[in-house]
């Protein structure tokens, strides 16, 4: 579904990503680990096509099509959806209006708004005065309306209080299951995702299939996400950095 080939990205004259190779298969939930400043968010922003993230080398393929230089909205039209860490304050733009435009004939959206406790935010300016958790819930409501087939989620659990982590986790799980009626169908009929997590907490709510570790702008390692998380929790990322250096 998504193939990142030898991707190098420059932001403000600084190379943040170097020769990144990564793959997200259809219906698979892929987790991206890495220390602060590794370039995880930059990778997601680049995949969505936001300006300021200049691809200097490599390719992004989505369902076999080269989307490296496509505008943001054309990527969204092809089925890519994103939840960023710090979305901008959208003064004057009401959540209800945006969700209405995105949802088109998607009628389940009101139920989702109730579940996410966002009904009272529908007539507010998006992100203006929202808490960390409210931003995440608002983003999930928008994604529920958008219904992409590839979800790029940047630390969905960060800033979410204990009370609403359940709703956030369950909503993400539901969105990823997509059309599949049971877990067994997930790889054939479910949606794909690339999820950044710092703490691994989100993995309590979703079935993660594959993990990558990104350090210093480069993919260092990949494998079973739970094994990787265990390793990171015991030894931190320092081992990964040294390991790569040894390989080089």
């Amino acid at each position: 579904m998504l193939e990142v080939k030898d991707l190098s990205v420059e932001v403000g004259g600084r190379v943040l990503l170097k020769n990144v190779n990564l793959e997200v298969e259809k219906g698979y939930t892929t987790v991206l680990f890495g220390p602060n400043g590794a370039g995880k968010s930059a990778l997601l922003m680049t995949l969505m096509g936001f300006s300021g993230y200049n691809v200097v080398k490599g390719q992004i393929l989505f369902n076999g099509e080269d989307i490296t230089h496509l505008p943001v909205n054309e990527r969204a039209e092809r089925g890519i959806g994103i939840m960023t860490q710090r979305p901008p304050n959208m003064t004057g733009v009401k959540l209800r209006d945006l969700v209405g435009v995105i949802a088109k004939d998607n009628t389940d959206i009101e139920k989702r708004a109730e579940y996410l406790d966002m009904v009272r935010f529908m007539d507010r300016d998006i992100n203006v005065g929202f808490s960390g958790g409210e931003i995440k819930r608002s983003e999930l409501l928008q994604l529920s309306a958008q219904k992409p087939c590839l979800y790029l989620l940047d630390e969905p659990e960060s800033g979410v209080d204990l009370m609403s982590i359940e709703e956030v986790g369950a909503t993400i799980n539901d969105l990823l299951l997509g059309e599949s009626k049971c877990v067994g169908e997930r790889h054939e009929r479910g949606n794909s995702s690339l999820i950044i997590t710092h703490t691994g907490q989100i993995m309590d709510f979703i079935e993660a299939d594959k993990g990558y570790i990104l350090c210093n702008g480069t993919v260092m390692c990949s494998g079973n996400p739970r094994d990787l998380l265990k390793e990171i929790k015991t030894s931190g990322y320092e081992e990964c950095v040294t390991c790569k250096r040894k390989r080089i």
């Binding site: 936001f50 505008p71 909205n73 990527r75 969204a76 901008p88 959208m90 435009v101 995105i102």
Partner: peptide
């Protein structure tokens, strides 16, 4: 620009 692209990421044209 960030605001425009935020909406474009939801599928709206520029």
């Amino acid at each position: 620009r960030e605001q425009v692209e935020y909406l474009m990421a939801r599928g709206l044209s520029e």
